Amino acid sequence: METRQGAGYVVKAAWVVLTMAGSVLAQQGVTLRAPTRIPKPTLVYIDTDIGDDVDDAYAVAAALSDTRLKVVGMAGAFGDTALRARMLNGLVKLAGRTDIPIASGTKTANPTEFSQRAWAEKQAAPAPLMAVEAMRRAILTHPGLVILELAPERNLADLLREDPATFHKIGRIALMGGAVRQGYSPGSKPVAEYNIAQDVASAQAVFAAGVPLEVYPLDSTLATPDAAEKQRLAQAKSPFAATLVELTRMHDAASKYGTTLYDVVPVLAVEEGAVCPLTPMRLVVDAKGFTREAAGAANARVCLKLDEGSFWGRLNGDLGAR
């Protein structure tokens, strides 16, 4: 039987042999290179009010297409959450993914038209699963998980209230919401942005919870595709291309505001800081749903300016657009 000392001697001898071999090869002009390490994808959970504005559909398609991200779950949030879950289920099937659980949050009133209802109603319903339980399972399975929050924050606030210990195992929350120094058009005054204003109490709870928070407000999310960009995306080599064209047509027919890809920004920026650089800041949500800068220690990192070149390049790359 080999003793521990003997085993150690064998390991040391092997190391010496390898070192000598490397030295000989170096003298002969041969360079030994360390194997290339492929970084592990960032695990993300998407909480979205998909189906009203079309930006959520682009955000989900981008997340499912990006090899740097791995989506481990998705939930429909706010409004008709069950129909949102059906829409998510349809997009997941287009991606050929069978490993992503789809959940529904608490159904609420919704002042916004579900513009893509006709497409969503054609999709099969996923297995019944409530958002709080789905998030809890995902976080406990993957501590440090990133939540991509693309909706009013009701589902997150419900988890915080029901299971604060699990909530605080979230790695960070990348949130589209708020208006810090401008509103819905460049140079305009800040307003109570939609995702925050629809459920002020939930937003206040999430902002005050202490989990690392990345905020992508209106200041940096007014990404509007021009005609050439729409054409590129329509011709993308992506399983989502034709569906995104159809969903955009439905949305634009129902909305007077056109297509703005608000929710795509945090998805693209969460693992590529050049898309939307972050600034430490203290933000508070007031009773009217305004996100105000405040004195004191930073509770969030906030993107105030989008790098549009990086944004469109990354989106086109993810969706295979030319």
Rank of each mutant, 00 (worst) to 15 (best):
L247Q: 11
E214G: 06
I139D: 05
P164V: 09
Q27F: 14
V146R: 12
T166V: 11
A205T: 06
Y262M: 04
M135A: 00
T141V: 01
L150T: 03
A234L: 01
V54K: 06
D55K: 15
A254P: 05
A228T: 08
T243S: 13
L69N: 06
L160F: 11
P152N: 07
S23T: 14
H142C: 08
V60D: 07
G210F: 04
D99I: 05
G171W: 02
L91A: 01
M176T: 14
L91S: 04
K12A: 15
L278T: 12
R84H: 06
A131L: 04
V16F: 12
G309P: 09
C303M: 03
A205Q: 08
A294T: 09
T141I: 08
A125R: 04
V211G: 07
T67I: 13
A236F: 08
S202E: 01
P186V: 11
D252Y: 00
A274T: 14
A300E: 05
T42L: 15
S310N: 12
L278E: 03
E308N: 09
S188C: 10
P152G: 05
V44R: 03
R97W: 03
T141Y: 02
T112W: 14
A209S: 13
L222Q: 14
V11Q: 13
Q123Y: 04
A151Y: 00
D52C: 08
P152A: 12
L156E: 11
G296A: 02
A34T: 12
C276A: 15
T106R: 15
Y45G: 00
V211T: 10
I50T: 11
I170Q: 04
N110W: 08
E121Q: 13
V24H: 07
G258L: 06
V30L: 08
A287D: 15
M20P: 05
T36L: 13
R249G: 09
M87A: 12
E113L: 12
H142I: 05
G273A: 15
V200S: 00
W15H: 14
P266M: 06
L160G: 04
A254L: 05
A254D: 11
A109V: 12
A179W: 07
P152V: 04
A269G: 06
Y194Q: 13
